[in-house]
Design a protein around this nucleic acid. Structure first.
Lengths: 84, 84
DNA sequence: TATATATTTAGACAAATATCTAAATACTTT
DNA sequence: AAAGTATTTAGATATTTGTCTAAATATATA
């Protein structure tokens, strides 16, 4: 839970999730969507991955990232405990 | 949204919400539940309040804090956009 | 095999954050 | 009014975080 909230606590990372919600993208395509260096985006992707919010798959020289919505279920359940 | 995720990105603050989920508490009662100084807890309460996750009401020399679950609805909706 | 492309790792740095102690503010009680 | 209790504000400090550039790794292509 800690890792998830940590990952979600950044506007850039939340935007990355919005992008991946629409379709899978390579690291480069994600980086192109922001005014931030590739290493920084790579770091954000790492944090999202550690939180299990995204997954990655190597395809040749590219790395394709996908969103993992099943983890969102955990957050959802946590939120719901407050909605009695 | 930024303020909400920022507020939720701390284990102590999430525990404060868990406590307030059960019943309203004074600042002192909340502080007593943690091994952290009162000023630090006061700071956490301030962050939760800025995010509108809690409200406060002065009662004599005490300040009573309550959870505001309506804000959780915003997070819920955000999460749900990923659960297509 | 040499060069180009895609991505990450390493290391540095400034800004943000969580914590503390000391002091200030506000209310209550004697 | 003075002293005690509840809470916050101020200021300091160590840690974490987001960002950068430079270098390393891995794959593709000429």
């Amino acid at each position: 839970m800690n890792e998830i909230f940590k990952a979600l606590n950044d506007a850039t990372r939340r935007e990355i999730l919005e992008l991946l919600k629409q379709k899978d993208l390579t690291a480069g395509e994600i980086a192109d969507a922001f005014n931030i260096s590739k290493p920084s985006i790579s770091h954000h992707l790492d944090i999202l991955k550690r939180a299990d919010l995204i997954t990655s798959e190597k395809k040749g020289q590219f790395i394709i990232y996908s969103i993992n919505t099943t983890i969102m279920e955990d957050v959802l359940q946590w939120i719901l405990t407050f909605k009695k």
